[in-house]
Amino acid sequence: MNAAITLWNKQMSKLSGEETFGLLIQPILWVVLFGVGMKGIMGSAVAGGEDYIAFMAPGIVALSALGGAIAGGSVWLDERMRGIVKEYLVAPIPRLSILLGNTLTIVTKSLFQAIVIFIVGVLMGAQLASNPIGWIGGIVLVAGYSLGFAGIALAVASKVEDSGAYHALIFLLNLPLLFLSNALYPLSSLPQWMQIGARLNPTTYVVDGIRQMVLQNGDMLAGGDMIPLWQCFAAITLFAIAGMWFAYTAFRSAVR
């Protein structure tokens, strides 16, 4: 555990000014530009009226978590390719702590981004739920979602031999995960086949759960057909476990 924390600490301390700026500015641009731009046409389509910024904020949280996992995976890939990982491998530390350190880093950054997004959302007029327990529930969901994708990204990064293959594989996932979900539009507005796809997408569960727990009138935002909260937590828990298991097996074969 000490080793995992050391590696986490090392990664976090490497956060440069530019990278922190990037972590902040990207989700902010989404909320401000995309949110405001879409508000006009989407406002009437979203249950609850004008509040499209609040509606889409959870989607941007998910998108940022996904981006963070991809970036974290490429850090690990880079350490493998450049041989930095050998410094860890000759050290008397459990192999698993290397994976754990990387995962912790990804989740930390995602949570940081999620909080920033909600602060911006609130500044832009979204209203938070009055019950802070819901906020914590939202944070747990984001952490689980981030764990799942951290696992997938780290697994792929453990297997591939160059960054081209990594990005090709990862970007294949990126867009469908965003668009084949309820992140940008209500589930009920989608055709049947897309609804089925969205139901298989963990993004849908994290977005729906956050809407219901973190935002004021979240149940209305989520549309008539919101997913029961227990299902959100169950789906995200399963996803997190599956992702980590995937990473664990890929990682074991990569570092032995």
Binding site: A3, T6, L7, N9, K10, S13, E87, Y88, A91, P92
Partner: peptide, 11 residues
């Protein structure tokens, strides 16, 4: 930092 993190890995 390189030295410090290395030392920390070894406890």
């Amino acid at each position: 930092q390189v030295m410090t993190y290395h030392g920390r890995l070894y406890g």
